[in-house]
């Protein structure tokens, strides 16, 4: 289901924990699977559960609890905008609105070309840089004004 490279990364995560606590690596393993596959299908979750020797429903509990896992397909790029209070005060909500208008979609929607999914996020621990947004759970973009957003969208081909 996953490439040898991803499995190697998962094995590295497993090694961080005591030998009888493989389940500790489930968050990392799900993240790695999502990175490779784009989203977490139930097959993917079951695979990870099997790999770590835990019941599939236990892995599903984890996958459905944490915000950054996607249990439904998302666009090639997932843009998560922080709209929490500190960000809101300095334009986080406005940035979200700007994006919606630009992309012609609402939160939790994907552009028709399957390129971008827009999500509303909670505090990213970067309130001083507001407005902030994250691309694909990985790349944080700070101090986003309309020009910066235009630039980012142009970049996300």
């Amino acid at each position: 289901m996953l490439t040898p490279d991803s499995l190697k990364r998962i094995d590295r995560e497993i090694a961080k924990y005591p030998a009888d606590q493989k389940q500790s690596a489930v968050m990392a393993a799900l993240a790695i699977a999502q990175e490779e596959l784009g989203w977490l299908s139930s097959e993917a979750i079951e695979f990870i559960a099997g790999y770590l020797g835990m019941p599939p429903i236990a892995a599903y509990e984890v996958a459905s609890f944490y915000n950054m896992y996607d249990l439904k397909p998302v666009g090639k790029y997932k843009l998560t905008v922080c709209t929490n209070l500190p960000c809101m005060l300095t334009g986080g909500v406005d940035a979200g609105e700007y994006l919606k208008k630009k992309l012609g979609i609402g939160y939790n929607e994907t552009t028709t070309d399957g390129r971008i999914t827009l999500k509303e996020g909670e505090c990213m621990g970067a309130c001083g840089d507001a407005p902030v947004m994250i691309v694909n759970n990985r790349r944080m973009c700070s101090w986003m004004n309309p020009e910066q957003i235009d630039k980012l969208l142009a970049e996300l081909e």
Binding site: Q23, A25, A28, A31, A58, Y66, Y69
Partner: peptide, 27 residues
């Protein structure tokens, strides 16, 4: 010493939720 990466749950800042999360469970 090892790093454990969270994945989006404020509650995991609560110390016992954090422990549950390291154990590979819901926070």
């Amino acid at each position: 010493l090892f790093a454990h990466h969270g994945y989006g749950a404020y509650i995991c800042g609560e110390e016992t939720a954090l422990l549950e999360s390291i154990e590979g469970k819901k926070g």
